Simulated assay, not measured.
Amino acid sequence: MSYSDAVSSSAKAAAPRKGFKLVLLGDASVGKSSILLRFLHNKFSEEIATTVGAAFNTKTIESKGRQVKFEIWDTAGQERFRSLAPMYYRGASAAIVVYDQTNAVTFDRAQEWVREVMSTSTNPNIVIALAANKADMESKQQVPWEKAERFAQQQGLFLLDTSAMTGKNVLRLFEGIAELLPDEPFMPQQRGLQVLTTPTTTNATAATDQKASARSRCC
Score class of each variant (00 low, 15 high):
76 A>S: 12
184 E>H: 12
187 M>W: 00
80 R>N: 04
24 L>W: 10
10 S>D: 14
65 G>D: 13
90 R>A: 02
117 V>C: 07
72 I>D: 01
8 S>W: 11
173 L>Y: 12
52 V>N: 06
89 Y>K: 03
99 Y>A: 01
209 D>E: 15
150 R>L: 13
97 V>R: 01
96 I>F: 09
152 A>V: 09
2 S>L: 10
174 F>M: 04
114 V>Q: 06
116 E>I: 01
21 K>V: 10
185 P>E: 03
122 T>N: 05
157 L>R: 08
163 S>A: 03
202 T>V: 15
117 V>R: 05
95 A>C: 08
94 A>C: 01
72 I>M: 05
105 V>C: 02
58 T>G: 03
177 I>D: 04
20 F>L: 01
164 A>P: 09
82 R>H: 12
190 Q>P: 00
86 P>C: 08
144 P>D: 07
204 A>N: 13
127 V>N: 00
47 E>H: 13
71 E>P: 01
198 T>A: 07
110 A>H: 02
138 E>S: 03
62 E>L: 06
142 Q>F: 03
56 F>G: 02
182 P>Q: 09
198 T>D: 11
164 A>Q: 11
67 Q>V: 07
90 R>Y: 09
110 A>D: 00
57 N>T: 15
47 E>F: 10
11 A>V: 14
141 Q>P: 00
131 A>I: 01
162 T>H: 09
96 I>S: 09
148 A>I: 08
185 P>Q: 05
19 G>P: 09
123 N>P: 11
26 G>P: 00
44 F>V: 00
38 R>Q: 14
142 Q>W: 05
3 Y>W: 12
192 G>Y: 13
219 C>G: 10
201 T>K: 14
86 P>G: 02
127 V>I: 12
164 A>I: 03
30 V>S: 05
134 K>I: 10
157 L>T: 07
105 V>R: 11
216 S>R: 14
140 K>Y: 09
52 V>K: 15
80 R>V: 00
198 T>R: 02
1 M>Q: 13
130 L>M: 10
189 Q>D: 14
37 L>N: 09
140 K>W: 03
146 E>Y: 03
123 N>D: 06
77 G>S: 04
91 G>N: 08
78 Q>G: 06
209 D>R: 08
113 W>Y: 13
49 A>I: 11
39 F>S: 02
120 T>I: 05
62 E>Y: 06
190 Q>L: 11
56 F>K: 03
151 F>W: 11
161 D>M: 04
